[in-house]
């Protein structure tokens, strides 16, 4: 305005309008460009996880003023601010579970440090945090699915036994062993990522994803019959008739997996067994009869 200030007094209306219009148009153009850039730049890649208590992403981005206080107050230094050139919105805090998971401090210092409630101060119990959801994404490489005993994710889980349980399944390959399958329960998992960090594979088979990415959603009209029955306390359609198997006396059938049960067996008097009470005899006998 050094020049234009002095001119502006002598400036006629046409000049004034044209310079103003020029400025408004170029700023408008910049604004539109920035708006479109923001749309793209404001998307968070799935491996970047927000600190505990973070508002839903859209609200978070309007509330977070990018001050980095959460980064400074994290005692484990796991938090980073998105830098220019990263996929992460510039200056916003995140952590990467595989390299530095949330250690779930009981006093949640990162949330306390936040001046704008972008990290929600109503979060006081860290176990209520929902940073993401762990998912056993690769059953082909997770060695538990191969029948090996690993259970590392299960054991490091800070909400052990609730967020991840081990589901015992039959090992079809060996025919006689069990598989101890890690199963994540979304009602307890905080998404801290300690499991992803601890996974013994080169690349983790269990990964933390944003909740909305990881969770399915049942159709609103869906009802599970057995749950409705439980709620009502009785069958809601025609009353169930107990199924009867036509089996010989002393034999019954267990539907839950045990199959045929011959109850007589228990009553049968201990006849002299074909097996010796000395286990060595059994071993020696097997060696003689190759099969």
């Amino acid at each position: 305005m050094a020049e234009s200030d002095s001119k502006s007094r002598g400036m006629n209306r046409r000049q004034f309008l044209s310079t103003t219009l020029k400025t408004v148009c170029s700023v408008g153009l910049m604004g539109v460009g920035l708006g479109f850039y923001a749309q793209r730049a404001n998307s968070l890649p799935p491996m970047a996880i927000r600190p505990p208590g973070a508002l839903p992403e859209e609200d978070f981005l309007s509330a977070c003023i990018r001050c980095g206080l959460c980064v400074r107050d994290c005692p484990y230094d796991i938090l980073f601010l998105g830098q220019l050139g990263d996929d992460i919105p510039t200056g916003s805090p995140y952590f990467i579970a595989r390299t530095g998971p949330c250690e779930m401090c009981e006093d949640i210092p990162c949330v306390k440090a936040c001046p704008t409630n972008a990290l929600d101060h109503s979060l006081t119990n860290i176990e209520d945090a929902r940073m993401g959801l762990a998912v056993v994404v690769d059953q082909e490489t997770c060695i538990a699915f191969q029948g090996l005993r690993c259970e590392v994710c299960f054991n490091v889980c800070p909400i052990r036994g609730k967020a991840i349980t081990l589901d015992m399944q039959h090992n079809v390959r060996s025919g006689k062993h069990a598989l101890f399958i890690p199963v994540v329960h979304s009602e307890a998992c905080t998404g801290c990522g300690l499991c992803e960090k601890a996974c013994i594979l080169e690349k983790a088979a269990i990964k933390v994803f944003p909740r909305d990415l990881a969770k399915g959603e049942l159709g609103q009209h869906y009802r599970f019959g057995w749950k409705e029955k439980e709620k009502a306390g009785k069958a809601l359609v025609t009353p169930d008739v107990e199924h009867q198997y036509n089996l010989p006396e002393g034999v019954r059938y267990e539907l839950q997996g045990e199959g045929l049960i011959i109850e007589k067996k228990a009553e049968a008097p201990p006849q002299d067994s074909p097996f010796s009470s000395n286990p060595l005899d059994t071993l020696n006998r097997k060696n003689k009869e190759p099969n």
């Binding site: 920035l34 923001a38 404001n42 990018r66 919105p89 510039t90």
Partner: peptide, 29 residues
């Protein structure tokens, strides 16, 4: 832009905060 998008758009490109953040938290690009 803040009102329309509901996010602090200028902070994505603000050279003032980006410069200091580059010094304090890592340079990036």
């Amino acid at each position: 832009l803040s009102a329309i998008t509901g996010s602090i758009v200028w902070e994505l490109v603000n050279p003032v905060s980006i410069t200091l953040r580059a010094i304090l938290f890592g340079v990036g690009l």
